[in-house]
Amino acid sequence: MTVRVRDFLPADAEAWVRVRRAALPFMVTTPEQVLRDLADAHPDRRYRLLVAEEDGEVIGTAQAGISHESPKPGQGFCNPYVHPDRRGRGAGSLLLRTGEEHLAGAGASAVYTWVLDEPADRAFAAKRGYAARRPAHFLRLGLTDGSLPPLQDVPSGVELLTAADFEDDPRPLFEADAETTADEPSDVPVEFSDYEDWLATTWRRPGFDHALTTVVTVDGQVAAFSAAQTDGLTRYWSAMTGTRRAFRGRGLAKLAKNTSLHRARAAGYTDAYTGNDADNGPMLAVNRWFGYEICATEVRHVREIG
């Protein structure tokens, strides 16, 4: 039995999702999303999807590209995942090596990868020259056990909207997303400046739920939001929750997220997931207030490739 790595084909979308859901069951992934992410990727991202297959069966996947939105050039990423039942066959090594070669050709000076905080996974990364950086947590909240906090009163001057209310002009949400994302703790800072790219990769992304994405306005200005992605079945993912700098300290992010979670439960979603940097104390505290519990931890690793 021989494992080989090749480029992703559209016909691989279902198998890609099967492997990714097995390796990361707390992520919300759909075939449509995988296909659109590849089709809509910015040219500067040099985005490439890889699959590892054994005897015609897809057993591993990887995403590789350049973090083109970072103000620091040359920051690459490669995230390989292998089906838990197919590990130990060399698929992860081949995926990572192929991704590194692609990134070196694209001008990357460093490769970042997420590694599950398990002894075998961390040993895999260390053996290949990767150094551990910052951890991040996956969190889960059951939406059917009745544990959601009650809906909050809406203060005077505050209005609760959805992303669907901005269909004619989503730019205010782009500006709020750019400002809050820039303040997130990260090894690779992100600066959103390309509105058209944001429309393609965020606003029109399959799974981005305009009806469940909740927006808080104060005197008509976008102040906070909680972006929702779903698989159209049972899973809800909090893609980003944030408050613009001028409105922080007023509980508006909590108001937005609580409203979104209640709407998700009413729409039939049963499992809510999110991710937080381990140093993002304020957001972790908000999620604990909702009842989220950590279900897994990943540690970001990096290797300089010169």
Rank of each mutant, 00 (worst) to 15 (best):
A41H: 14
E196G: 00
R250G: 03
I294P: 00
L35M: 13
Y273A: 01
G60I: 00
Y47L: 13
L94S: 15
M1H: 13
M27I: 00
P206A: 12
S70G: 08
V5G: 00
S238R: 01
F77W: 14
T214V: 06
T181P: 00
G92W: 12
G242D: 08
L139K: 14
D85S: 13
G92Y: 09
T217V: 09
D194S: 12
G142D: 15
N280Q: 04
G99H: 03
N276I: 04
H301I: 03
T201A: 04
L103T: 02
V222D: 08
L143G: 12
G249D: 02
D279Q: 11
T30R: 02
T214L: 05
G146K: 12
E159S: 15
V111A: 10
G74Q: 08
T243W: 05
G129K: 00
V286E: 05
F290R: 00
L233K: 15
H210A: 10
A176R: 01
A228K: 01
A227N: 07
V115D: 01
A178M: 05
K72C: 08
L148M: 14
R171S: 03
T270A: 14
L143C: 07
Y273S: 04
A228N: 01
D187S: 14
P135C: 04
H68K: 01
L116V: 11
Q75Y: 08
A131T: 14
E175T: 10
K254N: 02
A278W: 09
V115W: 06
Q229Y: 09
E167H: 04
E293D: 11
I294V: 15
A264H: 04
P80W: 10
A224G: 05
I59P: 07
T30I: 10
V19F: 12
A272E: 06
D187Q: 13
T213F: 08
H301N: 06
L96F: 12
G232C: 06
T162K: 11
H137Y: 15
A182V: 00
S238T: 15
V82A: 03
F138R: 10
R45M: 12
W198E: 11
